[in-house]
């Protein structure tokens, strides 16, 4: 077992455990804490996979932006009381079993296929290749992404400033 694999397994276990805790928490604020754990652990996984740029973006955007946004929304909405989970037993079992079966099936397929097609060039992907691909081959999607962000900005402002749904302002 190489050092990289050990570090990868550590971050993977951390990500899985804290992702389960995100779903299981009753209090939304604690969920946000575990979401921050999950996001940072996934950034560690990205670093192990030699996607350093992706890891840095993950820490900046998720760890710095989205988690703080969640905290603000919970504080503004003042969600102190837990929302009761009223659901009958049979639908609950059903909707948990469906993703569990999906995971088991695909995990079986993944692990039964010939193992250890080793990933990870030891030299690492150079950042220049990523930048060049982003600026040449994927220039059009890149610009469309900026248009999407502009549309989201305008849409979020318009939705959030209306007092009610019947208000046309």
């Amino acid at each position: 077992m190489t050092v990289t694999l050990a570090i990868f397994l550590f971050f993977a276990a951390l990500a899985i455990v804290s992702a389960v805790l995100v779903v299981l928490q009753k209090n939304a604020m604690r969920s946000v804490l575990y979401l921050a754990f999950t996001v940072l652990a996934i950034a560690g996984v990205f670093f192990c996979l030699q996607a350093e740029y992706l890891g840095a973006i993950q820490i900046l955007v998720y760890g710095g932006g989205i988690v703080v946004l969640y905290v603000f929304v919970i504080v503004i909405a003042n969600l102190k009381e837990a929302v009761p989970e009223r659901r009958k037993l049979f639908p609950k079992i059903f909707i948990v079993a469906m993703p569990a079966l999906l995971a088991a099936e695909i995990a079986l397929a993944v692990f039964k296929s010939r193992p250890a097609a080793a990933a990870g060039p030891e030299g690492g992907l150079e950042l220049g290749a990523l930048a060049e691909a982003l600026m040449t081959t994927y220039l059009l999607p890149f610009e469309i992404a900026s248009i999407l962000l502009l549309a989201v900005l305008i849409g979020a402002v318009i939705i959030a400033r209306r007092r009610s749904l019947h208000d046309s302002r």
Partner: peptide, 24 residues
């Protein structure tokens, strides 16, 4: 060297946990 199977399994597991969260 990280086997690609492990990475796919991890991604799928996180995806399934999120799916359970959205549904439940």
């Amino acid at each position: 060297m990280i086997p690609v199977n492990l990475v796919l399994g991890l991604g799928l597991l996180i995806f399934s946990i999120g799916l359970v969260g959205v549904l439940v």
